[in-house]
Write a protein that binds this DNA or RNA. Structure first.
Lengths: 135, 135
DNA sequence: GCAAGTTTTAGAATAGTTCTAATCTTCTTG
DNA sequence: CAAGAAGATTAGAACTATTCTAAAACTTGC
């Protein structure tokens, strides 16, 4: 009932990506524990600490591919830094401004009313809510 | 009843900024017409087209100072690009993903219910709502 | 196990932004 | 309105995050 199995090669294949050694290593770090927020740099440092080494370029490639495949969601909270969220479900974010820390909160209880309809010729892609807090 | 006068030197002084020639030129481009969204590059190109030349570094400095002084609001919608919005009132944004176009919409009719309380030791700074649409 | 097509990699390249230190402006005071 | 002090501007270097390049190393289907 876990929904997401720990068979990472299979998960990658299901997403249309070849299960290369480095993609599997990255998937393991990203998805084997609970939900996470990473940047390319933080993920690179983490995987380098494990014994499988992956180049930074590959980390960037993999993050973009995982996002395009729907395995990750990109969250833009500050200029010049991209976060990737392993929680692809419907939810929103707290952003703690001074530290650059990001936290999920479930969208179940959040309701947004009165949004205008999208401009002509466009359709809704996503609604991001970012609650910015400071100390 | 216009609220914002066209006396840009006075407005800058009121914001605690010296009305230098380049800041006045930038303020004029930014504030003399209706609300606008600019990037550093777009503002630089625009002001260069007028006869007053301002270096790119100064455009960056001015945008950051204007934002810190509350004259502009920074909107982060895409990684690696900062938009500045001359509308500092309470409102939200449409972001048209393929073009990178940004549009305001008023927050009057928008209500958000059920937001969780900020984590301990933090206080609310702002709630950003970005409605992402695609063609 | 071998080609054919992908992926990885190190390093170069790019984009956006900030920094540096010299020069120039603006403001204050007399 | 002149002089000095403080602050602002500038070109270019530097920096950060990310993407590109082209060669070498994998994966896969047969």
């Amino acid at each position: 009932m876990s929904g997401n199995s720990l068979d990472f090669p299979a998960r990658l294949r299901a997403a249309g990506l070849r299960p290369t050694r480095q993609r599997v290593a990255l998937a393991r770090v990203l998805f084997e524990a609970g939900h996470r927020h990473v940047t390319a740099e933080s993920l690179h440092a983490e995987v380098k600490a494990s014994r499988m080494s992956v180049s930074l370029a590959t980390v960037y490639n993999a993050l973009n591919q995982f996002r395009d495949a729907g395995l990750l969601r990109e969250v833009v909270v500050a200029p010049g830094r991209s976060y990737f969220d392993t929680n692809t479900g419907h939810h929103h974010h707290f952003y703690i401004e001074p530290d650059g820390e990001l936290h999920d909160f479930p969208s179940e209880k959040v309701t947004i009313a009165g949004l205008p309809t999208p401009p002509k010729g466009t359709r809704l892609s996503r609604v991001d809510v970012i609650v910015r807090v400071r100390r």
